[in-house]
Design a protein around this nucleic acid. Structure first.
Lengths: 207, 207
DNA sequence: TGACTTTCATACCGAATGGTATGATAATAA
DNA sequence: TTATTATCATACCATTCGGTATGAAAGTCA
């Protein structure tokens, strides 16, 4: 399932060994998401994880393998969380979009999601495969599900559901980007709810 | 005008010296935008610029100073370009939004703009001042100008101009991000024009 | 021309990098 | 218990890092 065989097989490890492995991963997540790939040293990962450097290299091939495994795992975990039955086909459009907006609002307040987004973008040139994974595993199914909902629940203003999906999700993701990554919440604050309400009225009408 | 005094004064330099300085900047732009701050070595900058390392250090204090100067200059250059009389208050709304959408479409095809965006986001944690500069110098005036236009040219669906501005610009910036940075144009292509047309119809009505 | 400044080439510095070797200690499994 | 495996501590490796020193060559300007 992984893009590359960067880690030793996860099967057949003792609980002791598996705990160490999780320890490494937890530490590596913190450090990589904070300092980026090149800004992170393996010594620091070991220190943060409370583990000796050799232990890391007995679980992962090299720095790239560790970083890749971390970002892949965070991305795929994010996918699962994203589809916790968020979109219910039997719910009316306005309620559905409001619920979806709340999902984005929740992401905005999740520092690890924000850091993942920033990291995938920041490393997209050095690690194109991770960016492609994000697109295929997060963006593509998100847009698709949105379209499927409006295929079942049409609405007069929605003539091009995929374009609408991109407008809806794009606006809210960009809101997270400008507010949480580019310090908008400090310099130029704006409530996501206000953007979302306007957006929903545009899409469904303000009746 | 600069945030920090990272470079020696630009005044009173001979043309010979100024040419070397531009040479450094051009090389540094290429390397920093491709490899990021930590991924860039001063040796590589010198090599790419066709200059010896000492020459760099006679024009800039240190690596941070060079990087900061580069990103500041690119950001401010982008601001000037952005306001090349793009928004004309006397033009009708649909035409104005179409023109604005074309500006974003032009940015999408400008690799140095895309790289700047990616870099500012990717380094936002290490260089928060650069991210704040981008927000204050690019995002804030963009939103403001948009609002001023619709204060002069009201439209029935535009009850909250600032929210509309964020939806319009946010959608198109996110389009650039997903298509050009996250490899959407390769994996999941979608024409910006299609998004923009749908967006404009939502905002102004499709009559 | 000559006085001066800048860039050149090259070599160097201490510190940090990713990654490895060794041998002792501790956890697991028989 | 014993045999094995994994983690420990520590030291080490070659390379690269940001940054500096020196002195020769080349540009500028009077």
């Amino acid at each position: 399932m992984s893009l590359t065989a960067n880690d030793t097989s996860k099967e057949g490890l003792s609980a002791y060994s598996k705990a160490k492995r999780d320890q490494i991963i937890r530490g590596a997540i913190e450090v990589f998401l904070q300092f980026g790939y090149e800004g992170t040293s393996m010594n620091r990962v070991a220190e943060r994880a409370g583990v000796i450097k050799q232990t890391i290299y007995s679980h992962f091939n090299d720095k790239e393998g560790l970083f890749t495994a971390i970002i892949e795992s965070l991305t795929l975990a994010h996918v699962k969380e994203q589809f916790g039955g968020t979109i219910d086909m039997n719910v009316p459009p306005r309620q559905m979009l409001k619920t979806l907006a709340k999902v984005f609002a929740g992401r905005q307040k999740d520092p690890s999601y924000v850091a993942l987004l920033r990291t995938v973008i920041g490393e997209s040139s050095r690690f194109p495969e991770l960016a492609r994974l994000y697109t295929n595993a997060v963006i593509r199914p998100g847009i698709k599900l949105f379209c499927e909902y409006f295929a079942v629940n049409p609405s007069p203003r929605i003539k091009d559901p995929e374009a609408i999906a991109r407008i809806f999700c794009g606006t809210l993701v960009n809101h997270i980007m400008t507010q949480e990554v580019l310090y908008g919440s400090e310099l130029f604050p704006f409530q996501m709810e206000r953007t979302a309400d306007t957006l929903i009225d545009l899409i469904l009408g303000s009746d």
